[in-house]
Design a protein around this nucleic acid. Structure first.
Length: 277
DNA sequence: TGTCCATGATCAA
DNA sequence: TGATCCTGGACAT
């Protein structure tokens, strides 16, 4: 259940809980058994995240563990010695005082440095990383006739952005999701990028995605709190059929490239700008 | 107990 | 565009 802030948070937790410690590594489910065995007895150096990809390094071995949670994956932590495995645990790692369990990842591999390099070459700038260059994202957006909604899900445009940040950032900038990328102005992209940097850092710090501005928060508008199951206050994500907090229009949804897209037809108008169908 | 669904991405056609 | 993979939670039966 991850967008980029989750992966970065996990990387930070791994570093905080295990860095400098000799770890024990296993694969109760079995599919990562050979690789996991090579980790046991090594000192963990650090966890690091690029977009939705998580890397874990160890002393004395060039390869790094690479994890991508996909839709279903989750990485959880516990204190003390690990209990008997419950469910399908692909990778279990334990340190001096805690353990981590990985379930259902889309990817869990041991990658050589050249493989890591190749993987990172497929990623665009990550709003959560200081080394990100938003111009690389702009180049793709500016050159594309695809919708801005589709482009924001492209990890080469902005690594770590997922369905929630996509929907919410488009809402916050009042953009029609189906507007072609090439019709976006540079200033609009820069504003989107800056907003992603802010929103994703806030989500990283808080551990949930909040995108609603103070003046639109339920308390400020005299309404009861409305926190989505994902854990945050949002404008349109998964609010199909409910009224927009700002203009009162009914929030809509449509499937786009196999994912649910949410938007407010009142605030995100098909404006004077030409848009895709 | 079963089905559908999810903050994702890849692959074949 | 559709099928597929991964796991577990929500919901229906």
């Amino acid at each position: 259940m991850p967008e980029g802030h989750v992966t970065h948070r996990l990387a930070d937790t791994i570093s905080a809980d295990f860095a400098g410690q000799i770890v024990t590594s296993s694969s109760p489910q079995g599919r990562f058994a050979n690789e996991a065995a090579r980790i046991t007895g090594r000192v963990l150096t650090e966890g690091e995240a690029y977009g939705k990809h998580l890397f874990v390094g160890f002393d004395g071995i060039d390869e790094r563990v690479h994890v991508h949670l996909g839709l279903a994956g989750r990485l959880t932590f516990g204190a003390g010695a690990p209990p008997a495995p419950v469910g399908a645990i692909r990778w279990r790692m334990s340190g001096e005082a805690s353990y981590a369990d990985l379930r259902g990842p889309a990817a869990c591999d041991l990658l050589r440095p050249d493989e890591v390099t190749a993987l990172l070459a497929r990623l665009g700038p990550d709003p959560l990383r200081d080394d990100a260059d938003p111009d690389l994202g702009w180049q793709r957006v500016h050159a594309s006739s695809m919708s801005i909604a589709a482009l924001l899900m492209d990890q080469r445009v902005a690594a770590g952005v997922g369905n929630i940040f996509r929907a919410e950032v488009l809402y916050r900038h009042r953009l029609d999701p189906m507007m072609a990328g090439r019709l976006l102005r540079r200033a609009e992209w820069d504003a989107i990028w800056d907003d992603l940097v802010d929103l994703m850092h806030a989500a990283l710090a808080i551990g949930r995605i909040d995108t609603v501005r103070p003046e639109h928060m339920p308390e400020a508008m005299g309404r009861p709190p409305r926190v989505d199951r994902h854990g945050g206050e949002v404008y349109v994500y998964r609010r199909t059929g409910q009224r927009c907090h700002v203009c009162g229009s009914v929030v809509r949804t449509a499937e786009l490239a196999g994912r649910n897209l949410f938007w407010c037809p009142g605030c995100q108008r098909r404006s004077r700008r030409r848009v895709l169908r």
